[in-house]
Simulated assay, not measured.
Amino acid sequence: MAQNKQKRGPMQFLQFGVIGFANAAIDIGTLNLLLLLFHTDAKGLLLLYNTIAYTLAVANSYYWNVIITFKRSAEGSNRQRILFIVQGLVSLGVNNLIFLGVNELLQLIGINNWLQYNVAKGMAMFLSFLASFFMVKYVVFRDYGKRYIDEKN
């Protein structure tokens, strides 16, 4: 049983990562589409665009991670949904702070806007991905009851 637990962690991270690539495509694709259709340099609109893009990716993440990555511990309970929303808001905060912060730094260097926004988005996605994985694994879909039953068998 201990060996199964050890394999589950890396496998979950791999599954979460694969789903994360799809989320990244949704996230960065939505941001770039919004920038293409409604170009702006205004921080407020950039924050709005980033929030819309991230929210779509998080919705996709919830759906696929419940079905694949955390199917053993996903109950579909209100508690899990609320915790997922809370972690999503925390990860959104991390994502927005990094996105705006890196944008500011890159603007000082004088990089063109398109590259600036995409580099900042990439860094924001990576760091919020890490934060999200650990919150989802150890808080949202924590395997309380099933772990006790598994240990007894």
Rank of each mutant, 00 (worst) to 15 (best):
R81F: 15
I67A: 08
Y49T: 05
F133E: 06
N113Y: 09
T30V: 12
I67V: 15
F38K: 10
F84E: 01
A131I: 06
V136F: 02
F134P: 09
R8K: 08
L37N: 13
Y49W: 10
S61F: 03
I19F: 01
L33A: 14
V136T: 07
R147M: 13
L83T: 03
L106G: 02
G17Q: 12
V58P: 03
L115R: 10
R81Y: 15
L45E: 06
Y54K: 10
I85Y: 08
Q3T: 04
F21Q: 09
A57P: 08
L92H: 00
N96A: 13
A120Q: 07
L97C: 14
N95T: 06
A42E: 12
F133N: 02
V102T: 12
R79E: 05
G110M: 07
A22R: 04
A22K: 01
F99M: 13
N78Q: 12
N113G: 13
N4G: 07
I19Q: 10
N96F: 03
Y144K: 14
L33W: 10
N153F: 06
L36R: 07
V90W: 01
A53M: 02
G9I: 09
L83Q: 15
K43W: 14
F126D: 02
Y54I: 01
N96C: 14
N118T: 08
Y49S: 04
E75D: 07
F133L: 01
G122F: 11
N65K: 10
L100I: 12
I111M: 14
